[in-house]
Nucleic acid binder design. Structure first.
Length: 510
RNA sequence: GCCUCCAUAGUCUAGCGGCCUAGGACGUCACCCUUUCAAGGUGAAGAUCGCGGGUUCGAAUCCCGCUGGAGGUACCA
């Protein structure tokens, strides 16, 4: 499907409006990204202003999570998104937190009641529940039966006088159609009869999403609503609401859904879903942004690596696809690895790795000072094994034998290479010890020459000598190149570890 | 059930009527490099462009139907 032509002919104002009900989902992350790229990239490239607004939609007191708002600001900053107006920084259209805008919504609801476009509904939750069940049993489409829409003024007054609770519902027109023009899907037509009399104001006086969103987007002069595809079904009602207020609706662009690997919504069951989890696992914001940008958007079908600057320069709404995309953890890992191995500078990577080492008690606070000896040491280690680092959280394990006084306990049997005997390993290690005592591991080339000569003299293949040394020094069978590993570990620790291995092996022998 | 959206390899995608014997990437497999594991290099397998009808000299590309997948169907967003 091809996208309708998208022309930006004016200053753009977009908003990202999360609910503080928990941590930010990757789907939300992709939505902010696209909003931000539209305003800061595409619009500005075309010579228009692009303003990004961050609004907090906390109208559901039941699902409100303490601290979630701060968490969202924090993760967005980490992700690399900024905004011009918002709940934390204010702006000319504030407040930007819906719970602080209640009078606005109540006035709006009253206005709609006054001009006949909304009505009070006194139906109890129990009645609605029963209604739904009845409809389900009869195989009828569920929905409010508009019971209270045609109450007489006397009935209404009586209920109000009796102190009955009520909600305010939108009086949706029951004939005709509503056209929704979506910037990435084109036009769709909805039959108004199928549209519900949605609740606008809840019985607790808080607005629903529908009312608050329409009033705020109008009040904050939003020009483009870019939100998830799950909002398509209510879009026609929103358009009718704008019209009921006498307002011109903004443009709509519904972003394609992000699906779980097996199909359906992406949830915890499939792996991480929250932006914070990806951060904690050691994904880089650059990699996550790059990957998320490519979920539903492509530049030329060939280019894959995009920095934030590249995206600002190249991203366009026109190239956003309407079809849903499945989240692929493997590909995300690949991007992370690319950034770690090929894109970040060594200093940058070292800086990113240190917090993970500190948390694992493998580094001190001093390490974060780039002029410290500890930083320099970690930088050396990082250089040696960055091409086997996929997640920053892998660093403590991969680096532990470099940072600890001695390797973790290992099975002495590992000291014997495949197709080798304990005697051969022992002889090799004893010979190697002499090499290390006579030379310095700082000279990789000399050590390599000496060890290869030693292997030859003992009638061993290089691997039969190198593997025992590797295990002796690292405690494991997998490591970076042997000579660089030795160099970074240093003469003293190398000699000590070889001696320990010789003891282990001769002990196991007897 | 009803409303709506979507439909190119396992996954993300290029393709907007002839440049397509369908291109790129992840993943998979093989080989090279090699002291292990990675990284890197080379190559391979993998898509009757969901199915069926049209339109057209010509369709992955346009239209219709079907099927499949997904979303919505709350006093949640």
């Amino acid at each position: 499907m091809t996208n309708p032509t998208i022309a930006i002919d004016r200053d753009i104002r977009v908003r990202f409006a999360p609910s503080p009900t928990g941590s930010l989902h990757v789907g939300g992350g992709r939505t902010v990204l696209f909003n931000w790229l539209f305003a800061k990239g595409e619009a500005q490239r075309l010579g228009f202003d692009g303003t990004m607004i961050l609004r907090i939609e906390d109208t559901d007191r039941n699902r409100f999570v303490e601290g979630a708002t701060e968490g969202i600001f924090d993760i967005l900053h980490w992700f690399g998104i900024d905004w011009d107006e918002g709940a934390d920084i204010g702006g000319p259209h504030g407040p930007y937190i819906q719970s602080e805008r209640l009078p606005l919504y109540q006035q709006g609801a009253q206005e709609l009641i006054d001009n006949g476009r909304a009505y009070r509904c006194f139906c109890s939750p129990e009645r609605l529940q029963g209604l739904r069940e009845e409809q389900r049993q009869k195989g009828l489409p569920p929905g409010y039966d508009r019971h209270c829409r045609f109450l007489s003024q006397d009935e209404i007054d009586a209920k109000l006088a009796a102190g009955d609770g009520y909600v305010v519902r939108f009086a949706m027109s029951r004939e005709g159609t509503t056209e929704v023009y979506d910037l990435i899907r084109g036009e769709s037509t909805f039959q108004n009869v199928n549209l519900e009399d949605l609740v606008l104001l809840k019985s607790d006086g808080y607005p629903t999403y529908h009312l608050a969103n329409v009033i705020d987007d109008h009040d904050m002069q939003i020009t483009h609503i870019m939100r998830g595809e799950e909002w398509i079904p209510t879009a026609p009602v929103h358009i009718q609401l704008y019209r009921a207020f006498g307002w011109e609706p903004p443009a709509f662009a519904h972003m394609p859904l992000i699906l779980a690997p097996g199909g359906g919504k992406l949830s915890k069951r499939h792996g991480s879903t929250a932006m914070e989890e990806f951060r904690a696992q050691g994904y880089l914001p650059e990699a996550l942004m790059n990957y998320l940008a490519l979920l539903g958007w492509s530049f030329d079908g060939t280019t894959e690596i995009f920095s934030k600057e590249d995206l600002l320069e190249k991203w366009s709404l026109e190239r956003v696809s309407p079809s849903p995309a499945t989240f692929d953890y493997d590909k995300l890992r690949w991007f992370n690895q690319q950034y770690i191995n090929h894109i970040l500078t060594l200093d940058e990577l070292t800086e990113r790795v240190i917090p993970f080492l500190t948390a694992a008690l493998l580094a001190t606070k001093r390490a974060s000072d780039p002029t410290s000896a500890e930083f320099a040491h970690i930088r050396e280690i990082t250089a040696v094994l960055k091409d086997r680092l996929v997640l920053l959280s892998d660093a403590p394990d991969l680096m532990s034998f470099f940072l600890k006084a001695r390797p973790d306990p290992y099975d002495p049997a590992l000291l014997v290479a495949k197709k080798s005997t304990p005697e051969q390993s022992l002889a090799g290690l004893r010979g190697a010890l002499t090499v290390f005592e006579q030379g310095t591991v700082a000279d990789e080339a000399a050590i390599e020459t000496a060890l290869r000569a030693l292997a030859e003299g003992l009638g061993l293949k290089a691997g039969q000598l190198f593997m025992p040394i590797r295990v002796a020094v690292t405690g494991r069978t997998e490591s970076p190149g042997l000579f660089e590993t030795l160099r970074v570990i240093g003469d003293d620790r190398v000699r000590a570890r070889i001696r320990t291995a010789i003891e282990l092996l001769s002990g196991a022998e007897s």
